[in-house]
Design a protein around this nucleic acid. Sequence first.
RNA 1: GGAGACGUGGCAGAGUGGUCGAAUGCAUCGGUCUUGAAAACCGAAGUGCCUUCACGGGUACCGUGGGUUCGAAUCCCACCGUCUCCUCCA
Length: 429
Amino acid sequence: MIDIKLFEKDPDAAVQSLEKRGEIEGLDDLCALSKSRRSALTTLQAKQEKRNELNGMMKGATPEVIAEKRSEMKSLSQEIKSLQTEADDANERLQSMLLSIPNIPRADVPEGADEDANVEIKRVGTPPEYNFEVRDHTDIGEALGIIDFERAAKISGSRFVFLKGAGCALNRAITHFMIDYHASKGDTELAPPLLVRPEAAVGVGQLPKFEDGMFKTARSIDDPLYLISTAELPVTNYYANEILDATELPKRFFAYSQCFRSEAGAAGRDTRGMIRQHQFEKVEMVRFTTAEQADAELDAMVERASDILSQLGLAHRIVQLCAGDLSFSAEKCFDIEVWLPSQNTYREISSCSTFGTYQARRAGIRYRPVSEGNKKVKPVVATTLNGSGLAIGRTMVAILENYQQADGSIKIPDVLVPYMKGQTVIQAS
RNA sequence: GGAGACGUGGCAGAGUGGUCGAAUGCAUCGGUCUUGAAAACCGAAGUGCCUUCACGGGUACCGUGGGUUCGAAUCCCACCGUCUCCUCCA
């Protein structure tokens, strides 16, 4: 969540930069709430001090004195209890309001209301040309017998898929290639839980606002677990409520996982094919840094995602999202979009963001700066980042479409051939 | 799913209803000693919040939430979690 102190220091500036995203409700109440929380706390603590003082006199006191003070103490205790409730309420109201306010876009994020205002940073590679009519991955995959949507729909409904035969092998090859790629860079691999508690989802900003985007499971009504919408949830929360040492930063992780999204509100979008599924696979990069390190780490993640696509021989471009198109928790974000011949356009295949201290403040991730001399230094809130490296299903889509040949077969990208046991082509059997 | 045990500071581990933010040990940091290091000795050291320009002061926190009490780490209840044994199982 945002730092309430920013608001108190200069409310107008904070509101102004926050509203680069568009209109946001409830900002007016924020300062008032914070003030009332504070005054409730101050009066509460004054009473507590008084109580402690009286209490100290009771310890060795004679029975007469104790009897005499007892009623005074009792009423003081009552008073404290109700003040406590008041303070807790004020605190809770403030917290819940803060939880539903998005992150403040960074100053270097372009203005704009929606994706039309996003800024293309660069293009890498050249979209291939074909001397035959290109087909989309659905037609290609079904014709090759490596993708089966119909039977998946019979069993699970729309937005699910069976991979089959060489489709499974290709999917695995893509996955292993990406895992090996990140491992070779020295990042630490994590295989995370796919079900998480609500707190973890709150930590990254998925809850409370976006519950309808997730699949919720329950052992009992009060004890839900959520299927992760991305490995970001478990991995970013890896250090929740911990204090790291500055010398260990930046920490770089990656995780392969299944991801589950209800895609509520996406009705009608990408209904055909594997672009938008309820269940998909992804390799995710997650980093913990100081504020100073964040920009370099963000650039490095973008570079990695781009490099993976280059190695796969896939044309792509890098786009910086404008303020209005930023996700809830992000303060700066680059999308990597891969060329899809069937759509004659670039489609998102990776999203790399820095969240500043927004997520870390929610999740309680801090680090202790290196101290100078004997001075003790307070923990400071860490910076978190993450980026896809990459979405596996969409990579498969891109390969099927970009590597299609006139006879309907698929050439396997060179870097994947070793992962396909030497197979260089997928043909109809 | 059944039975039992337990949840205290970075870790280990004490703790009588008031003098406990909490002994002690280890680890950590600073210093003395040493050519340097080790050992030894001395000292420092939790987190959040409120207040203060600052020094500082205050308050809360012993799994979580309630309760009893003038007063709870300590007593009672519920919940959560961990461990051991049994059962089951990829």
